[in-house]
Write a protein that binds this DNA or RNA. Structure first.
Lengths: 160, 160
DNA sequence: GTGTGTGCAAATCATTTGCAAGGGA
DNA sequence: TCCCTTGCAAATGATTTGCACACAC
């Protein structure tokens, strides 16, 4: 993975190209996302983490920033069924090539950082006449080594 | 696909086993789901369709019914990013073996009624020590024959 | 200055819940 | 009777919006 400052620079450029500015709020939001890349943070979680370093920020700004990042394909807005939107950084080229394993028992969420769907996308193209631009693949189940039998899916999307 | 009355009977039994009753509201909700199997209806859409035949029903009942059906694995509660939960009937054994194609241009949603993930589930099991119980696979992109270039994803999950 | 970005508070919208009443075993 | 179920209205909680102000080019 790239250096955080490099990432920020690159996204700074992306913003400028589209006529947006890199503000302290946006930069901090980005840092928080980069530093917690493995967790799939909700807007509220991002807000609290940003607030630790920049206490004047308002939650509406975080929502607006995340929405902007989603439009620019910097992050992906996902919903794992716990009632809040969660934000997942995309890859270096803003590609989306990872999948999720979600443990039913402890709620842990692990990423598979590979793209397993090349063949299936070909199949979709030929059999269904559908040109794929993005995909989403989540597996739910249980980790063999999941010890956490009492806490049942408490709505946290914590990295494993 | 099975006869609607047979389906209802079967689900009736599932309910009884768990100590629940088949009420007119539940039966109508089920009928609406079966009759619109290809559309992925939201709770509000189900509510309006049920209301046409049973005008006294309250929307809370529909929410509670759909939640119950989801617990019993009769339907699956899904989120396609348009801000509402949508409900997808499961197969005859309450299995979940279909995938989605979502057109970015017209918003159409088509189901692939096959399970393409057997191999990948094996891979997850061996490489990640994760026992899969369910999965979700959505592709977004464009249908080659999508004519609908002006209407951009209006939030409807209409069957194609 | 013009337009973009921000914080605050109020508004919105889907969904959930409390509660009193209905109805079947 | 007991417990499940329902409709209504009110509550909830995440997200969005209106607005006045601040800031950068």
């Amino acid at each position: 993975m790239m250096n955080i400052m490099e990432e920020i620079d690159k996204i700074n450029q992306q913003l400028r190209i589209k006529g947006y500015k890199m503000t302290p709020q946006r930069e901090l939001t980005l840092k928080v996302l980069l530093e917690n890349e493995k967790d799939h943070l909700s807007a509220e979680e991002v807000f609290m983490l940003v607030k630790e370093r920049h206490s004047e920020i308002g939650i509406a700004t975080v929502y607006r920033t995340l929405e902007l990042f989603a439009e620019l394909h910097i992050v992906e807005k996902m919903n794992f069924g716990d009632g809040v939107a969660r934000f997942d950084l995309r890859g270096p080229d803003n590609t989306h090539m990872h999948h999720h394993l979600i443990c039913n028992v402890c709620g842990a969420l692990k990423e598979i950082k590979e793209d397993w769907l090349g063949q299936l996308e070909e199949r979709v193209k030929h059999e269904y006449g559908f040109q794929v631009t993005d995909h989403r693949l989540d597996f739910t189940g249980v980790f063999n080594n999941c010890k956490n039998t009492e806490c049942k899916r408490e709505g946290k999307a914590k990295a494993v």
